[in-house]
Computed example of a mutant assay.
Amino acid sequence: MISVLLVDDEPVLVDIGRLFLEKVGNFSVFGCLSAEEAEKLLEKNSYDAIIADYQMPKMNGIDLLKIVREKYGDIPFILFTGRGREDVARDAVNIGADYYIQKGGDPKLQFADIAHKIETSVERRRALIAIKISEQRFYDIINFLPDATFAINTKGTIIAWNREMERITGAPGAQMMGKSGYAHAVPFYGYGRPMIIDLLLRPDPVIESKYRSLIRENGIITAEGALHLPDRTHFFLARASFLYDQNGKPAGAIESLRDITGFKETEEKMSRIIHHLPVGIHLFRIQDDGKLHCHGGNTASGEVFGIEDRCIKGTLIEDLFPGEEGTRICSASILIAKEGGRKEVENVHIIPGTDTKQFNLTIFQSDTEEVAIIYMPVCGA
């Protein structure tokens, strides 16, 4: 139901207007006989649209339009004017009337036209309000995300810059919003340059090759990198994806930055500890050929196989574990790499040169499609 306030100093026209509108459309029409009365009604009630005559005593329709625009925003407003009052029509449009209509002619046709104009303007206003509400929700959600997050449109203009971005960069959102020319990169690098959000919208193989671990998948880019902030260098896991409009077309992109500096520092400490452990550890990762290849190992793992330092990166797991026993270990390792789990294998014979050594192996998933194997020497072997 569309609520309409009809204002005219002629009671007959108010009654006719109410009858016609409520008959031809889904309207609830409230009538009054002066602009002053309309002003009082607007203070107490809300209406979806206003129709007002221009020529009224004391306060005319233009005066009422000015009050409505000042106090009540963009409520659809239709002004009735007399014939030959082009100056009034011009003023009405300049102040913000949605439509102006000259009185006269067939009332039935005229009010049918008014009904159509009301429906059009009310639907347009409701759509704009819905868009604003949707945008506000979008900004509210982004603001409360724990990760630093910003968004740009297809022209590269910043359209969102959340509180965590403000915190880590020291750049207020109010200053960043609306900037373009890779302005989003300036707080991190000191100058404008493409980030992964820009590579999503405009791919550049040369720039992408500079990232150590950039992955494109299903319209999403993920990459790790170091960014230089005012306090120190931080490591981030960055993730960028498209923003779409109501027609499903890209309208921009959004990027989130998760600070993994603490994780990287812990990982580095653990790596140093692992490399100095007396127990051998190997990491194997599934590659494009579907097989497990050595990804790394500590110093003690080299001693297990009689290799001076550690497992040569890229070595197939089958080359380290040959024979029937090795087949069981390889099969179990691939399964664990894909599905997780843990397996203990006892008394494995490893033969570096002519010496036979026995180990108990512990195999477990250390990361997605990756397994770790720990070698524990069998006492007395």
Rank of each mutant, 00 (worst) to 15 (best):
W161R: 08
L214Q: 08
G31R: 00
S366Y: 03
L200H: 02
A251D: 15
V345H: 01
R239T: 15
L128Y: 13
V7I: 12
V7M: 03
L5I: 07
G262L: 12
Y189H: 14
H228Y: 13
D8Q: 04
K117G: 01
R125A: 05
Y100I: 10
L79F: 11
I159K: 09
E39F: 06
N143I: 08
G17E: 00
L145E: 12
E346I: 10
S301T: 12
I207H: 07
G17W: 02
P187E: 09
R342I: 04
A97C: 14
I254S: 10
G280M: 00
E370S: 09
S241F: 08
L277F: 07
L243M: 14
V14Y: 01
F188I: 09
T356Q: 05
G192Y: 06
F144C: 07
A372E: 05
D53S: 11
F188L: 13
E324M: 04
E208V: 06
C32P: 05
D288K: 14
F305A: 01
G190C: 10
A226R: 11
K103V: 15
I158E: 06
G73Q: 11
R202T: 09
I273V: 14
L41H: 07
I131A: 11
L199P: 03
T233F: 06
S121H: 10
G353A: 05
G17L: 01
E344L: 07
E370P: 03
I317L: 03
P205Q: 11
K117C: 00
R126I: 06
D289H: 09
N218H: 10
F111E: 01
G341Q: 02
L229R: 11
A171S: 11
D245N: 15
Q110F: 07
P172L: 09
L229G: 13
A253K: 04
E217V: 06
P146W: 01
L320A: 03
Y100G: 01
V29N: 00
Q358K: 12
D367H: 12
A130C: 08
L42H: 02
R328Q: 03
R193K: 13
N347R: 07
I118D: 02
P11T: 05
V279E: 00
S180Q: 12
S3M: 04
L277K: 04
K103I: 13
R258Q: 15
F305K: 03
L243R: 08
L128M: 12
S134Y: 08
A92D: 02
E217T: 08
K291Q: 06
V7R: 01
L316M: 04
P172C: 07
G31N: 05
E265F: 04
D74P: 13
V304N: 02
L283S: 02
D289T: 11
N45V: 10
